[in-house]
Design a protein around this nucleic acid. Structure first.
Lengths: 197, 197
DNA sequence: TTTATATCAGAACGATCATTCTGATTCAAA
DNA sequence: TTTGAATCAGAATGATCGTTCTGATATAAA
């Protein structure tokens, strides 16, 4: 029997993340994770302590690896709705590359699958949504500083709701172009609204 | 030990639905379902055959009991965006009564929790979303028959995406008023868009 | 080479799962 | 009152879960 190669904790996290992302928390058994990571149980429990902690590590890694690279541009000082559009485009293209219908967004999935039964995950999902809202608000404010802040905040909330709907839809549809059109057109309605007389 | 009362299959379905809705499929064990329905295992297996079939029965019951009563008005021949607004209002009020953050929409939850691993549930979730889109399209068409049908269809798709996002959000937020404002304002942006010059 | 440490493979463990089975109890027809 | 089908309560079953343990093997310092 060939001996397994040692795996760094980061590689281990990356491989587990892929499995959690595609299959969800409940449907990912420890046997599955051992097989899909190529690591031993010993390595997994040594690195994380248990399934739940392993999931939390993957959750964090997902934000660093998937969310942040696409979303930081929205958080820049000079970001506008153009950067928001680019964020959607990047994520939709990624979803198409993975294959549609796809695994959607790990955070959004966890919101319905894990968060209701786990306060720690609930808090992390909440924090993610707050981050999204702040970023969207930043872009909206740069786009139209003259619009009342209450309205911009409302629109930022609308964008967060829509984003969650978009990832939810990406788990059902084969049609990446539909996602793209939806994102584009939703942004268009927002633009129309804040440029209205 | 007091003997349990006989339970009709319909009552059994209603009580199981409540449990599945609040806890999801994976987190609802057969022990939980026995306790929460007050029925015996014999009665459950006799009525449904197994957990999965029991869930499918609850899924159907959810549509009859929760979705249809609120949504049929949107499917009426003379429905407009007013009925769509009423649909959102009914569901948000219900969510507030159950308590926020709440169980959201059983169909939307199943889309992320069950559908990816089960073609039967996937098909039913798809059918539900198609129904929503058709209803929204009907209302949009009555609201503004002069707008090109492609654009109305696009907007109907937007409404479906947004609806999924709304139920997803209702699993995280305590703020029913935020959901209400989001629904109202989203409809307002749609209205603005189709009445633009 | 020897020894200590780390990691290996995989069996073992207790808990829990969905499902089935057993034997008692009820109730209505005979 | 007797009988038999239906339904009860709850134990038994086998599978699977997350976790821990055992003993072999590799690696690196002595």
């Amino acid at each position: 029997m060939p001996r397994k190669a040692n795996i760094s904790t980061q590689d281990l996290t990356d491989r587990a993340l892929e499995h959690f992302w595609k299959n969800g928390f409940h449907a990912s058994s420890m046997d599955d994770l051992v097989k899909s990571t190529g690591a031993t149980r010993h390595a997994i429990y040594g690195a994380f302590g248990g399934k739940k902690q392993m999931f939390l590590a993957c959750f964090q890694r997902y934000q660093d690896l998937v969310v942040s690279p696409a979303f930081t541009q929205v958080e820049e000082d000079d970001a506008t709705l153009e950067q928001v559009a680019s964020y959607f485009e990047i994520q939709i293209t990624r979803a198409e590359e993975i294959g549609l219908p796809g695994p959607g967004c790990l955070v959004a999935n966890s919101a319905t699958e894990v968060a209701p039964h786990d306060t720690e995950v609930h808090a992390k999902v909440d924090a993610h949504n707050t981050r999204l809202k702040q970023g969207f608000l930043n872009a909206l404010n740069n786009e139209k500083p003259d619009v009342p802040p209450e309205e911009l905040e409302m629109l930022a909330g609308l964008l967060v709701v829509f984003t969650n709907g978009l990832w939810s839809t990406s788990r059902l549809t084969k049609d990446g172009e539909f996602l793209r059109t939806s994102a584009d057109q939703f942004l268009e309605t927002i633009r129309t609204r804040i440029t209205a007389p």
